[in-house]
Amino acid sequence: MKTQYDIEGGNFSKAGFASSEVKRMLKQLNLDIKLIKRVVVAMYEGEVNIVVHAYHGTAEVDVSEKRIRILFTDRGPGIKDIDQAMQAGFSTATEKIREMGFGAGMGLPNIKAHADELNISSTPGKGTQVEIICYIKKDHQNT
């Protein structure tokens, strides 16, 4: 089952909107609550990254029996050095955005900590693609 959400760059008043839609959908599917919580953190951070850094993006959420896959694709400045972007505390966000409590350099590390897989590819000047996978089975085994 696939659903797609549009994410508008720079529109902070709508940041988190797609994430709450995804949360609602996953709850309706009656998935394990711990799994939903992990997906929500990863989804929110991916969504906010597009709002903060890109011009426009989409989140494609695909739920199968085994896993939830979220693919963020944006048009934006891209990431020059992905290893550096993954470092906790590293951020290119503006002062204004930081004052709101965003841009603390914790977004990608949060995704990494809560998702089972995180794959990033980026073309500077064009955009970024972030793939997040959370396995459904693994959570059931844990509980």
Binding site: M100, G101, F102, A104, M106, G107, N110
Partner: peptide, 26 residues
């Protein structure tokens, strides 16, 4: 820091902050 709360707070907690904008509620 919003990501700090996102990553580390858990269900049922009261969140103490100085941020007053809408994203806090999200």
């Amino acid at each position: 820091l919003l990501s700090d709360v996102m990553g580390n707070a858990s269900e049922g907690m009261a969140w103490i902050t100085l941020q007053t904008h809408k994203n806090v509620m999200a």
